[in-house]
Design a binder for these strands. Structure first.
Length: 483
RNA sequence: GGCCCCAUGGUGUAAUAGGUUAACACAUCACCCUUUCAAGGUGGAGAGUACGGGUUCGAUCCCCGUUGGGGUCACCA
């Protein structure tokens, strides 16, 4: 029995794409479910796209998601290094081996000639492919050019008209003809390998048993198969995951919304929600269950329940999942989260106790989807109303509201430490005395205390604010609201 | 355009040995609960499974074609 080893192999271009997160997640789930290893490999073979610090950020973000890898750039294993730019000699060696075998060859074409060739082919509606011109060079000519230091690339020597049948765990058998495959560059003139070479060499050397990656790679699968065959290596299992889509069904892109995991993190999304959500984009259980923790996903995951078609990234469902996961958290956890949010807010200067924050958490629990909403939706827990909602004021504030609230404040002031029940009972008593319905007085009270017409339970609000604050806010409202 | 992949309500999915009034969730609407807003509950609207053939007693499900969508065609991954 071969060990199950899978890898997530992102290119460090500056951030972790949510599609990348989904790919990483499925790899992780597959590995954990089957007692295998999950490896992280950095594919930084494109020097033109080098971004300072990008790899580090990628690692940080991946760690935030909780998808812990068994081997990676900063986690030693037996197959390192795990960063491709540190493996250049290896690729060189294998490229030369291919040349030895006649399966690859040196090419010295200038970019200009290549461009002309492409232009010509395009104008004549031909398949854009390298014309194998360099294959006409004799061994001596090649050696001379190499000796002269002419820039070169190494190309894959693709045979004519051969069928390549590949097995994909998601799609079944997929067939290609080599005629449509270009003599792909394997080694670039800067001495770096292209994805195709590096990927195959590393997957083999690192003992990767299953290649789980995005569907955008499906069309280059035959090139990879060819490489495995030429090297005489065992071909791993492949699974090409359906793409994540924009609302217009095109491949998920920056232009139509946030695609970076960092964006969601910064907006206050829970990693639990993001992971749960992204898991459901292309996979499901037979009972259509929606809520999963990472551990539960590991338990339930199965690669043969991965779908074939792309899935639209529907942010509203993500929001719902975020609210669900948020509500499941303990008061203590939420209080801690609110604390750090509070310390970043405009109220940071004003001291509040954890006890106070925990009361806010309980009062607002069912009313928020994001942690920062504890502050944004109910700032009145932290500051006195600066204005009063006009619509509510017109609808709820009557001529006798001021007088009633004054009486209420007086009663409250007589109680030493009013409980939530006290606020409740006194209001009811007073309403009875004045012979008005409770609804008629409770709304002005809410308006006085919060400035708005919506919010948590009225008496929770009063109790959390405390006696002095309640009285002060009532007086403030009486003074400010004139009708 | 060539090649490859895909196709169930607006969105994500279920219906996997072909037989269901095509199910669930999000979103949406209404009602209930209620001091407000949420949450929760109940119900509604929304697909006859892209279309057309075929196989079959019977197709969402199997086969073929069409249409539509997507991916990919670099010294980027």
């Amino acid at each position: 029995m071969n060990e199950i080893r899978v890898r997530f192999a992102p290119s460090p271009t500056g951030y972790l794409h949510v599609g990348g997160l989904r790919t990483a997640l499925y790899n992780y789930l597959f590995a954990k479910k089957n007692g295998g290893k999950f490896i992280l490999r950095i594919e930084d073979t494109d020097r033109t796209r080098y971004v300072e610090g990008a790899a580090e950020q990628l690692l940080d973000t991946l760690k935030w998601t909780g998808l812990e890898y068994d081997e990676g750039p900063d986690k030693a294993g037996d197959f390192g290094p795990y960063t491709q730019s540190e493996r250049l000699d290896i690729y060189k060696k294998y490229a030369l081996e291919l040349i030895e075998k006649g399966k690859a060859y040196y090419a010295f074409d200038t970019p200009e000639r290549l461009q002309e060739l492409r232009d010509y082919q395009y104008a004549n509606k031909l398949q854009p492919k390298y014309d194998k011109l360099a294959l006409n060079l004799t061994k001596e000519e090649v050696n001379e050019k190499l000796k002269a230091g002419e820039p070169y690339v190494i190309r894959l020597n693709v045979p004519e008209n051969e069928r390549i049948i590949a097995k994909d765990l998601v799609r079944g058998l997929v067939e290609f003809n080599t005629d449509i495959i270009d003599d792909q560059v394997l080694m670039k003139s800067d001495g770096f390998p292209t994805y195709h070479l590096a990927n195959v060499v590393d997957d083999h050397l690192m003992g990767i048993s299953h290649v789980i990656r995005g569907e955008e790679w499906l069309s280059s699968l035959p090139k990879h198969i060819l490489l495995y065959q030429y090297f005489g290596w065992e071909i791993p299992e492949f699974a090409h995951l359906p793409l994540l889509l924009n609302p217009d069904k095109s491949k998920l892109s920056k232009r139509q919304g946030d695609v970076a995991v960092e964006d969601y993190k910064n907006k206050g999304y829970l990693k639990e929600a993001l992971v749960n959500f992204v898991a459901l984009l292309g996979w499901s259980t037979s009972d259509n269950r929606e809520m999963f923790s990472l551990e539960e996903l590991v338990e339930e995951f199965s690669i043969d329940r991965v779908h074939k078609s792309g899935a639209v990234f529907n942010i509203e469902k993500l929001n719902w999942l975020n609210a669900e996961h948020l509500r499941k958290k303990s008061n203590e956890e939420l209080t801690n989260m609110l604390r750090s949010e509070y310390d970043k807010s405009r109220f940071a200067e004003i001291e509040v106790s954890d006890k106070y924050l925990s009361q806010v958490v309980e009062a607002m629990r069912e009313r928020v989807s994001f942690v920062n909403e504890y502050i944004e939706k109910s700032p009145y827990f932290f500051e006195r109303p600066t204005e009063y909602d006009q619509a509510v004021l017109q609808k709820r504030w009557k001529e006798d509201s001021s007088a009633f609230l004054k009486a209420y404040a007086d009663k409250i002031s007589e109680i030493e430490n009013p409980t939530k029940e006290d606020y409740d009972h006194i209001l009811h008593q007073l309403a009875e005395e004045w012979q008005v319905g409770i609804g008629k007085v409770i709304h002005p009270l809410r308006l006085a205390l919060s400035g708005v017409g919506i919010g948590p339970g009225m008496f929770d609000l009063a109790f959390i604010l405390g006696k002095n604050e309640v009285i002060a806010r009532i007086n403030l409202a009486i003074e400010k609201i004139k009708i």
